[in-house]
Design a protein around this nucleic acid. Structure first.
Lengths: 204, 204
DNA sequence: TAGATTGTTAATCGATTAACAATC
DNA sequence: TAGATTGTTAATCGATTAACAATC
């Protein structure tokens, strides 16, 4: 069964999960692959194939029980727990992330935010106080934080990534517009609005 | 040649472009597919294959002339011009986007920002004043804006998207954690930090 | 010329879709 | 039982890689 799951399938699971949680909040109990597919823009066959990699979660004739499938997907994605997250960079984006209320129910909790600007260090953002980045490696390692977000300028991002790796971080959400070079056991996801926009202008 | 280019190739071009512009800023004149590949985490063969869809941009023995390739990619992606962009939602993320200085050199310029909150309407953000969303469709249509970013809560995002489509927008960068249903000629890109993070926790 | 690197072909690999027996 | 929908197989489709002749 779950021998070696392609990354492209893993990438779709959070999308299914998000749609399922949305349905659950509306009190819907059951969904077919057809209905779910229409809601996320993915074919019903693909959804069934993806889910079948991990078990038999549906029932012929009725579809998928939503609370049950949510539970399964949360376990598969390891978000049936809360991950502590560190934010590096207390600019506008770091600010927005630190104040965002939507993480907790999706499995994450920001617990620290760092910057190197003396004008920002010590200032409150959301429920935190901005900490000096010189203490970052020590703080992250001691707290056992495995997940971090980089919101520093591109020129500093690789250096920050190196420090995060040194501190034991294994998953990085990178908002700096630059590719990060990290060891193979460290995952990186990229968010860059200009890159996303440029992907669409081709079709205009 | 450029008959029907797969979307997955179009998606890599902005990554190449970003790395090339970075190299150009450092004064580098030439790059091989090998070197570029190492910088973006993509195989050299793939880069050559991707670029060859659009023309012969390289030179055997030396590689690619960076300014020349930048020019070509900007033309292909249609970012050899400046696209006006509308932001809908003047919360933390809309705020961060409106103040971000990095768009212009990548082909974009935010020119308006909307909200429905009377407490926000009329207030300045960056170089703009927040406008009432009731004037959005008219303003966007008159200005001929084709590109927009949605930073409203999930509950309002589909309604906003419908209005943007009505106003003639063809490319939407959606920060709301929900799938948008739009006509086939409208492109959507999704940015949702929790979804991106959940894509990585599987491997932890 | 010798060395390097492209553009492209063919082979491989992987992902998606269609279809349907199984079964709720 | 009749209708609906899953899980899975086989077929199709598409993307990536390896390799090398062409050529700067």
């Amino acid at each position: 069964m779950a021998s070696r799951i392609p990354d492209i399938i893993i990438g779709r699971l959070p999308i299914y999960l998000r749609a399922l949680q949305h349905l659950a909040e509306q009190g819907v109990q059951t969904v077919s692959s057809q209905e779910l597919g229409e809601r996320v823009g993915i074919s019903a066959a693909q959804i069934r194939k993806d889910l079948s990699q991990f078990g038999e979660f549906g029932k012929q004739g009725t579809g998928y029980n939503i609370p049950f499938l949510i539970e399964k997907l949360r376990a598969i994605l390891k978000v049936d727990r809360i991950w502590d997250v560190a934010v590096v960079g207390a600019g506008d984006i770091g600010h927005a992330l630190a104040r965002y209320q939507g993480f907790f129910k999706r499995g994450f909790r920001i617990i620290m935010i760092f910057d190197n600007d003396p004008a920002k260090i010590g200032k409150p953002i959301g429920d935190f106080v901005v900490e000096d980045v010189v203490h970052m490696v020590e703080r992250i390692r001691l707290a056992g934080v495995k997940v971090a977000m980089i919101t520093v300028p591109a020129s500093a991002a690789q250096h920050v990534a190196d420090k995060l790796v040194e501190a034991g971080v294994k998953a990085i959400l990178n908002y700096a517009p630059i590719h990060l070079d990290v060891p193979p056991d460290v995952k990186v996801q990229y968010v860059d609005p200009a890159t996303h926009l440029q992907r669409m202008t081709y079709y205009l």
